[in-house]
Structure formats: structure tokens, C-alpha cells
Amino acid sequence: MMRALSAAVLGVIYAFLLLPLVAVVAASLTAGELMRVPPQGLSLKWFARFLASETFREALLLSLQVAVTTVVVTVVLATLAALCHRALSRRLAATYRVAMTLPLLLPELLTAIGLLFFLNGLGLGKTLTGLQIAHVVIAFPFAFLAIVAALEQVDPAMEEASASLGAGGFGTFRRVLLPLIRPGMLTGGLFAFIVSFDMFTISLLLKPVGGNTLPLALFDFLTYDFDPTAAAAATLSVIAAVIGVLAIERMVGLKRAF
């Protein structure tokens, strides 16, 4: 009795968590002309329409461009920072870790406002460079945490062994640490990509003149229209997340990544 009740409660909560996502994907697959869940017939025509729309296509390209740059910059910076984190004493490391993850812990809106003023002062207001910098700042903690988690799995004795065998600092990194933390770096990169690809508030306040990222385009679209093109655009995010989760589970195991 208790068992059945708690199973039912859990079922409802999990449904609450997952139904909206299922609804988005389902709506994008409809063959009809209206947003409908469950879909009326199956087709991919809304994805075709999404790609045919110049607004969405340009937004998608901008989002991809920003996300890829974010990944490259973030992973390099985060790897270096994670190596530094490893060298610190326990106490310092804890403080350093919190400091490095602050952009994740403080609301995106406030960071966006600060950056709006600050970048403007630097002459980078409303430029692609400014937007790019903001994406790196927000995505950085995700990559940092993933790589720190990967490094924590590496026994410090491995580095000592490598050093005792004559490898210098860089040699040890290249031959021992890098291969061991590569899955963590890939995970971090994936996180950075997804975070950047989905970023909204930052982009809203800092977007370059005339440029729209995909979430902004989707928001604008939703304000005036409500047809399955929006669902197709949103489904891209869902697909990216599902691929991300599967890849992370494959590479390092989910539990270690979060």
C-alpha cells in the first residue's frame, strides 16, 4: 500500500519533469498545420521549414559559431585552471573551486547586466566579441567542474611516478594526465557547447546589432507565432542534450560528470 503510493507519487513527479520535453519533440513531428500533442501524423516537414527560414538559419549559424568558439576557449582555460586547482592545498582548493564556479552560482541576469555596462565601457558593447566573452564566462564553470572531477580520479602517485621516471611537468601532462582526463575534457566541452547553445538572458542583453542567436530567434518567434516550426527549433536543443547525456554516460559516467 505504502509502496504503491510512493511509486505513484514518484511517477507523477517524473512525468512532471519529462512531459514538457516529450511534448516539444512530439509537436515538432506533426504532419498537420497546427501545434498538436499527440501529433497528427508524422513528418519532418517542420524541420525543413525551420531550415528554410532565413531568420532561423542565420540564428542557428550564429549560435553554432559562438558555441564552437566557446568550447575551444573554455576547455583550454578550464584545463589549465583545473591543473592549478590540483596543486592547491585542500582549503585553498575549496575556495578556488567556489570562486571558479561563481558564474554558475550567480543569476545570469545580474552577470548580463554587469557585462552590458562593462563591455560598453571597453567599446565592446553590442559586438560579437562581447557576446563571445560573455558566453565563455558563463560556460567556463561547467567545463571546469567536469575536468576537475576527471582529475580527481587520477591518483597523485601517477604524477610522482612519471616524475621519478624522468618526465618533466609538461611531459607528465602530455603522457599521463592528458590521456587520463581526455574524457573529462570532452565532457566539459560538451557542457560548454550546450550551455552556450541554449544561453538566453546573456544573449538578450548583449546581442550584437542585427545578430540573433537561436534562442533569441525562437523567443521572438513565439511572441508572435505558435506553429510547429518553433517545436522543430526547440527539438534541436533536446536532441543536443540527449546526445550529450548519452555521450557523457559513455565516456565518464554521468554521476562523475555532475
Binding site: 519529462l18 514538457p20 520535453l21 509537436a27 541554449d198 525562437l218 526547440a234 536543443s237 543536443a240
Partner: peptide, 24 residues
């Protein structure tokens, strides 16, 4: 775990949009 974590990787906008679809 994946059920709980994966929404984290999907933008807020998309998750809100899911509710729009459901409660239309």
C-alpha cells in the same frame, strides 16, 4: 539520474515552451 539531469542540459526557453504546448 539521466531523467533528472538531462533537463539541465536543455535551455530554459525550450523547457518553458514545452509547457506552452502542454497547456495550450
Amino acid at each position: 539520474y539521466a531523467c533528472i539531469v538531462s533537463p539541465l542540459l536543455i535551455g530554459v526557453l525550450v523547457r518553458n515552451f514545452g509547457w506552452m504546448v502542454l497547456v495550450a
